[in-house]
Design a protein around this nucleic acid. Structure first.
Lengths: 252, 252
DNA sequence: GAGTGGTCTAGACCACCTT
DNA sequence: AGGTGGTCTAGACCACTCA
């Protein structure tokens, strides 16, 4: 029953009580919440207010609702740690690209679908690749899956003059991946810049990554540099409930 | 007016139409949405359904609602880029710690409130610091503000044997910050490990960081290592609408 | 005081899942 | 068939903001 004198909205009281039961384990992961009609009777409030309470729990990521079945305490998924320092040449030469390498390490069956196209650089792309807006860039649009589940989206862009006449314009870049082809073409990589941010997914990303509610995405933009200039940028989008990023920094 | 035959819920149609107007700029950042009663008349649906539509826009981060005033298109804030490679010794010796250094770079007035206490290590802390669970750790709990606004939470923990009898147990660690004191005490830092993840904030974090709706936090756990062993771990929580992290990785 | 969003009721019917 | 959640109505009153 809710306390009508406290000034706290009834639906918040219900949400808080259920949240407390979840955090104590009284409602364990996977366990069903009482049905909405049951909560109506239990707390003596109307169904719209019960639904408001459940919606709060959904937004906090505590509960998943299945139409026709019920509401269930969310079970935390397993997090994969991505070591970003794996981009180094030694590690690269061993495998066919960063993602397939991670697959070996984490023990899942990877698959990648690639689309290749040519675009003209917009303001942001031009700035990151240090070229003129409107210049041609090769775009490699990739959807990475693990065990059939989409887990990562990546779009990489390269100045067209770097890719012309190389396997980088093909679907299959060959052994060692895109970076190997770049170095083969004389573009020796010196360092990478990675910019990491987080945000809520767009509706398209949420659908593609099959994200539960209240799960943000990690957006990583990586730029690969030779001694002279940037030769590739890569926009990655990862489900934050499945990934964490790991960096090792020297104290120098 | 909504299309009753499409099968798409009325509140979604309203949300999508408003979202479209926002993305085209017809409703510019800062502009007020029509009031709920106006939307009732405009679309011919009930107020609960109008509110459902507006709630969707809030959850997508498109709109901020102010009680008694109205709903307004959200204005994107300015993002501060944190260069993580600034932890290197050369950069460190120039300033009084990472946060105060960032303040200089970004041109804001910083302030830090610190609380110091002693705890016993739980399972996670023990694992990261490579000590026994139950061992004493010194905890430095910090709230960082810029221009009076809380922008960062940080909790760092150090094995007690490292801090005993040093300024690390004081509120003020002195010039160069905590890392300078560590090295002064003979703990020469060799490298840092940073693990980056993202999630929705807890209710406390949301309040403390004054986060708008639908803004995740970036959680960074940094561990500082000497040649022998870890000597500090630092759990940082950043508002994802205000920060991005930048890492530079050598291609080796 | 008039307008705004916030809370709340008591229903109705639909869509989905299970047995 | 009988349970679940999803959509929807037509009201009411409260809390906040601004002129």
């Amino acid at each position: 029953m809710v306390d009508r004198t406290s000034g706290v909205p009834a639906y918040r009281q219900v949400a808080d009580q259920l949240a407390a039961q979840i955090s104590t384990g009284e409602l364990a992961p996977g366990a069903p919440l009482p049905s909405e009609r049951e909560l109506v009777d239990l707390f003596g409030i109307s169904r719209p207010m019960v639904r408001e309470a459940v919606k709060l729990l959904r937004m906090r990521g505590l509960v998943d609702v299945e139409h026709g079945r019920g509401a269930f305490v969310r079970t935390p998924g397993q997090v994969v740690r991505l070591s970003r320092n794996r981009l180094t040449r030694a590690a690269r030469s061993l495998n066919k690209g960063a993602f397939l390498g991670d697959a070996d390490a984490a023990g899942f069956t990877p698959s990648v679908s690639v689309r290749v196209r040519v675009e003209t650089a917009d303001e942001r792309v031009a700035r990151l690749l240090e070229i003129e807006p409107g210049n041609e860039v090769l775009v490699r649009d990739r959807v990475m899956s693990a065990n059939g589940l989409v887990v990562q989206l990546a779009v990489s862009r390269l100045p067209r003059d770097v890719t012309l006449g190389t396997a980088l314009e093909e679907i299959e870049t060959g052994p060692g991946g895109a970076y190997a082809r770049l170095e083969q073409a004389g573009h020796v990589l010196v360092h990478f810049d990675e910019t990491v941010s987080a945000r809520m997914p767009s509706v398209e990303e949420q659908a593609q990554l099959q994200l539960p509610e209240a799960i943000p995405v990690i957006a990583v933009t990586r730029v690969a540099y030779t001694a002279d200039r940037p030769v590739e940028m890569n926009d990655m989008v990862l489900a934050a409930n499945r990934y964490e990023l790991h960096y090792r920094l020297p104290a120098e």
